[in-house]
Design a protein around this nucleic acid. Structure first.
Lengths: 274, 274
DNA sequence: ACTTGCCGTGAATCTGATT
DNA sequence: GAATCAGATTCACGGCAAG
């Protein structure tokens, strides 16, 4: 089956209106952070950030399927020695708008930008805010399981007396319940902290995040043939990864060069896959 | 020189009023989270949490030196499938009160509580919110950079082979990046992400956080003979560590048993030092 | 002193039953 | 009914003891 890849050139709010209701399974995006990237996006001021974002979020709410998920990668910058509060205000405002603030994942940037400041350390993490329309949403946890820790090899191979006894003797939290479930277990569920390095390879167009970041969330929240939307496409990392993972993709960006570049990259991927 | 250790039994708000203005260099505390610790602290409801905390914060603002720092360890729990928003509201309210929200550190809990749920992963991080009275505050970065190998021996260094594997394999299909040298870099230049396990086993008294947590912030924000305050002392981890590090300490708790226990522990430390 | 292996337990969260 | 409770599910670190 052919994968659809739609790239819209233009303002996010306007272009989103072209999309039908309840048609997207996952929105994964990293919007321009306040007061950053002045040259390309005109630099949204922190003071008007929420006001600027809310109409867009309303459209996102409309196009997202009831079972879908919206993941927002964002981090407030330091202004005048203080962390800006626009992200906090945005979360509260989105809830007012009808979104459920389901979870906040932490992206730990393992090789964050080096440097030293007089009263501040290097910023090594970003927020990945998860919003949903409903308390029930699609989530494919098995797709992102990780190997168990080293401890498991020893402990599970040779279950001690206590581990087996706890099944009956201990009440409450513990390891002993349903020991049989564990014997064959080699993988564990991940946590809400993601350890990923930032990509520093492609200097041409610095992506906001490494491919592994959207990849993880696409694995978690979608299946093949689902639709992934990035309303602030930029260099198109989300789209390229999603397309490679056999998801339909929709991208929006106001910069013609980005749209053209992503189209070209997707074509290359297409050829590569064949 | 003799180190002063004051322990006040009683309500935080009331006891704080006994302290003079601008007399504390560092406030490091972990207040009862909303809806937690019901048996010992009565369980403050999320809806009234900000209201409850603000008068205490006003006193903290008064007793803190202009160059001092306030570090608040907190994390919102899940209510009805959503993260509570009272922490976000608290940050905004504290700024209204005059605090500067200088930084947000992340404590990555390496051994977080196990569990599996249909639409959520395990919660593996907590917030460490840094507030200040002024944009200029005391910070001794060298203290946590240089002697890091000393205080962190065996704590941060350990990273198993499987741990390295997990970070890359969790994203599957081969384009995960191999990064295994981040720990050594972390030790050379700290970031705002702290990797620590909770100390939960084989301890007489379970503390809310590991000793390494207050230790790191005490190193960073104070010098010997400075004064450290914990208005929600609990089992006294902050005080014991601070005292061991030759800081004057002030602790407040409403539970008589805790006050008595911490006094006893501090005496033991005293003897040990001699 | 250094490694190896055993094992206790934690600011969890959801579901369904019971006051 | 709303509010509370009990039950089930689930990892991984770090302290000890032993080699």
């Amino acid at each position: 089956m052919k994968l659809i890849t739609d790239i819209y050139l233009g303002d996010s709010y306007e272009q989103l209106q072209l999309l039908p209701d309840c048609s997207v399974d996952l929105i994964f995006t990293s919007p321009p952070y306040a007061d950053q990237r002045k040259t390309t996006y005109g630099g949204v001021q922190p003071t008007v950030y929420v006001e600027w974002f809310l109409p867009i979020a309303a459209e996102l709410l409309r196009v997202l399927k009831p079972s879908g998920t919206f993941v927002l990668n964002i981090k407030e910058k330091v202004v005048n020695g203080e962390r800006s509060t626009y992200v906090l205000e945005l979360i509260l405002a989105l809830r007012q708008q009808g979104w459920l603030w389901t979870e906040e994942f932490i992206w730990h940037k393992k090789n964050c930008y080096p440097g030293k400041w007089p009263n501040r350390f290097r910023d090594a993490w970003e927020r990945l805010l998860q919003f949903n329309k409903q308390r029930q949403f699609s989530m494919y946890q098995e797709a992102v399981m990780v190997p168990m820790g080293d401890w498991a090899t020893g402990r599970l191979k040779h279950l001690s007396n206590t581990d087996q006894l706890r099944d009956t003797s201990r009440v409450g939290s513990g390891f002993g319940k349903k020991v049989s479930n564990w014997l064959t277990r080699t993988q564990a569920y991940p946590t809400n902290v993601l350890h990923l390095a930032t990509e520093c390879s492609n200097k041409q167009h610095s992506a906001a995040f490494p491919e592994a970041l959207p990849e993880w969330f696409i694995q978690l929240f979608t299946q093949e043939q689902d639709t992934v939307l990035d309303p602030f496409m930029g260099s198109g990392t989300t789209l390229i990864v999603a397309h490679r993972m056999k998801r339909h993709t929709i991208g929006i960006d106001i910069v013609p060069e980005y749209c053209e570049m992503v189209r070209k990259k997707l074509n290359e991927t297409e050829l590569y896959l064949i």
